[in-house]
């Protein structure tokens, strides 16, 4: 089968078609079931993290090594020529990409990955660019949804918490909008509601969505509950204490859940999911984090191999 992602840059979820999303998710499922330790044999992958990251960097580097590739790179831009000698990012990318077969990067500025894709000779994979995109998080979210629900169409999905600044919820909503019949339920403090531009995009695509004031209200009808953290620093202390209670998930909130409901969270969590939820059959956030390795394996395998054998 012709692989449409071969040598393609993965910068923004907006650049990836529905068919490509399905291909990545299905490839991740295959790699989870049947590891392929030689898919990246003799490949060198640059893993350049210009800002700190725990899960993204470690899961990328795990993915590379599980597929037989080797990693070069750094996890802190402090000692690079960019920081020390004032080199432009464009020049850094031109040089580093000439050493490697693919370039995985995270950068604190929005648009860094798009810029990198214009200066790199090898595929660039965006591991997060400032507050803009984090496409591999969305891919692992989609894979976790597909794995637990068996489909990406006709799903009822609730998004809870910081829907204004949370790039994960924006990208996931944009990705799921490419599939048929999904219905979105938004639950957030008024000050952190889903931005108008996302709602406008959903309107344009005829995606059904509604806002609610509590998690319990939607639990009986949803398939996926996507929790995010409301950051304390966005509110004053009194306001935060008063508001946060409405956006905390506890085991008792899930009393009327459908059996297939799964709770997802991009992590790290602080106190928005109480630990009693961890023991319920609905908790899936730690498996979701593990799925980050398979989703990233799938992506690397697809951009670096023209075909992938069954």
């Amino acid at each position: 089968m012709l692989n449409p992602l071969f040598r393609k840059h993965i910068v923004s979820i907006n650049d990836i078609s529905r068919n490509e999303l399905e291909l990545i998710v299905k490839t991740a499922a295959k790699l989870k079931k049947q590891p392929q330790p030689e898919l990246l044999k003799h490949k060198v992958i640059a893993s350049c993290f210009f800002e700190a990251s725990t899960r993204t960097r470690l899961s990328f580097e795990t993915a590379i090594q599980r597929l037989g590739g080797t990693v070069i790179g750094f996890d802190n831009a402090g000692n690079t020529s960019l920081a020390k000698k004032g080199e432009t990012l464009a020049d850094s990318i031109s040089v580093i990409s000439s050493y490697a077969d693919a370039f995985v990067m995270r950068h604190p500025q929005e648009g860094a990955a798009r810029l990198a894709s214009e200066f790199s000779n090898v595929p660039v994979i965006n591991g997060g660019d400032g507050s803009n995109q984090h496409p591999t998080q969305t891919l692992l979210d989609l894979f976790s949804i597909y794995e637990t629900q068996g489909r990406l169409d006709n799903l009822n999905i609730a998004f809870v918490g910081d829907l204004k600044y949370g790039r994960t919820v924006h990208s996931l909503a944009q990705a799921l909008a490419k599939f048929e019949g999904c219905k979105f339920h938004f639950i957030s403090p008024d000050a952190l509601a889903m931005p108008e531009y996302i709602c406008d995009e959903l309107d344009e695509q005829n995606v059904s969505y509604a806002t609610y004031s509590s998690i319990e209200e939607v639990v009986p009808e949803i398939d996926v509950l996507y929790m995010t953290r409301v950051q304390k620093e966005r509110f004053d202390e009194t306001e935060y204490q008063h508001m946060k209670a409405g956006f905390i998930l506890s085991a008792s909130s899930l009393e009327h859940a459908k059996p297939n409901l799964k709770v997802l969270h991009p992590l790290p969590r602080v106190d928005e999911i109480t630990i009693d939820v961890d023991k319920t059959p609905y908790a899936y956030y730690f498996q979701q984090a593990e799925n980050g390795v398979y989703a990233r394996e799938a992506l690397l395998a697809l951009v670096l191999n023209e075909t992938i054998g069954e």
Binding site: S12, L89, H107, E110, E118, G130, N132, Q133
Partner: peptide
């Protein structure tokens, strides 16, 4: 946005939504 201080030119796509004209940066989106 990464365009400040890097050797690239700014580029915006133009979109009319609900009567308003919006410009989307190619880089920071």
């Amino acid at each position: 946005c990464i365009t400040h201080g890097e050797p690239v030119i700014s580029c915006f796509s133009i979109k009319k939504t609900k009567g308003n004209i919006g410009l989307k940066c190619k880089y920071c989106e």
